[in-house]
Design a protein around this nucleic acid. Structure first.
Lengths: 238, 238
DNA sequence: GTTGTAATGTTGTCTGATAACCCGATATAT
DNA sequence: ATATATCGGGTTATCAGACAACATTACAAC
């Protein structure tokens, strides 16, 4: 069987090529929400591939939240408002991508800290204290250290009362922390930990006092300190 | 053939059930990065489903960025640092989810405006002016109005020089704008448009003058104004 | 007019086969 | 002895055709 994809990347496998093609049509508005995609049989015929491949392509679109399938009926383009928010990011985590991601992280976490200061519950404050209490026990910056740091940031995000912050902060900080754990620090470990604890403490206190501006500032100092400890420059416009 | 999924939701179709199961194992650390998944044949046998289903399940995991497959070798759990950033968001866009998303948008776009003020190129400034010039022609807040507004915000994001901002801002503002287009405004359309133009103008000028703080403030005013025009309250901690 | 039923089209799943590919083992050549 | 070439087994990728499950529509029966 001949296929019609000579103009596309040879490396990508068939289902991805087809899915990409339809994704483009959807984003470009050629296929509008509610529109029905061709049947699997039709697509199989027009693209010159087996139904297996077509099905996998459609599954991909479904996973990306672009279409939804109904058995016995067909595949339909979903409403824009109910699409997933997702970031493609094939990029390697080189130094450049890393600083860019860090740059995005900063305003998010600052705002999260501010909102947490205003909105946190008593239970969340306790959870934050508990997370802090775990820090001094950290002996290396492997699993336990990273996890403890991650927990701290996640709990703050949760204290905003806004689930979007939790998802974004967790996704981003998780990714960054693991890089940090590898790219690791200049200077002795004790210094890193003690400084981290001290900065976390500042944030903690500001939140406890429901001091939004203070929390924001403390978070900025922490992120700047953390970045500096791994020898990273990032631009934050005052 | 009998299957072993009675304990799971009956509604989900087979591939999703299997994929979910493996995703859980990965997130729980039972399967660590680098680990090899069972072969398709094995999984087919142990789960009591056909290889078609297994393949689709694996494709789903691959789309979620959790595993990567190598032809002739197998499927492997990917490193955490190279996983996609993605936000699950099955939620309906009710008023509550909308304000939450808006709350996330604000600090992002403020920072984007500030960075754009510092980093923009001449070409990007021209693109911004061009986008502004298109606004007065908007007659309704349907396709053209939404697109023009979206363009404005996207160009600012691009002017940060940081691709992550582009992706986040586009994903979020796109989603919000389409809701706004529907939920539409109290008050006459001319007012909405003229106010939008005026606020965009302020942002534009601040960016032109490379006034980061001004851009940030102007963006905040714009977002607050925009929210207010659709009768939305949101919390932004000063 | 409503309800039951058959027909049809579509997605979901199954089965078995072939092609493309990777990797290690063995054989061969230098 | 080392390097290279070839082969074989295992795995994923794709193909082909079938049946099952489900939705929609049209039509028949009441």
């Amino acid at each position: 069987m001949n296929n019609d994809f000579e103009h596309l990347a040879r490396t990508e496998h068939l289902p991805t090529r087809i899915a990409t093609q339809f994704a483009k049509r959807i984003y470009d508005g050629v296929l509008k929400p509610g529109d029905k995609l061709p049947t699997e049989h039709e697509m199989s015929k027009t693209f010159g591939v087996s139904r297996t491949v077509v099905r996998e392509a459609i599954a991909q679109l479904r996973n990306e939240g672009l279409v939804e399938t109904r058995q016995g009926v067909g595949a339909f383009v979903v409403e824009r408002t109910s699409r997933q928010i997702r970031l493609e990011d094939g990029k390697k985590m080189d130094r450049h991508a890393f600083t860019d991601l860090y740059q995005l992280r900063v305003p998010l976490e600052m705002e999260a800290a501010a909102l947490a200061a205003v909105n946190h519950t008593d239970a969340q404050m306790e959870a934050l204290d508990a997370a802090m209490a775990r820090m001094p026990g950290v002996k290396d910056w492997g699993e336990s250290g990273v996890t403890a740091d991650l927990d701290f940031h996640r709990i703050i995000a949760e204290a905003t009362g806004n689930d979007y912050f939790v998802q974004f902060v967790v996704a981003i900080s998780e990714r960054i922390s693991h890089v940090i754990a590898i790219a690791r620090a200049e200077g002795p470990l004790e210094d890193v930990i003690s400084k981290t604890i001290s900065e976390h403490g500042d944030i903690c206190e500001a939140i406890r006092n429901r001091d939004a501006a203070g929390a924001r500032a403390a978070m900025l100092r922490h992120l700047q300190g953390s970045a500096q400890r791994v020898g990273l420059e990032f631009e934050f416009v005052e």
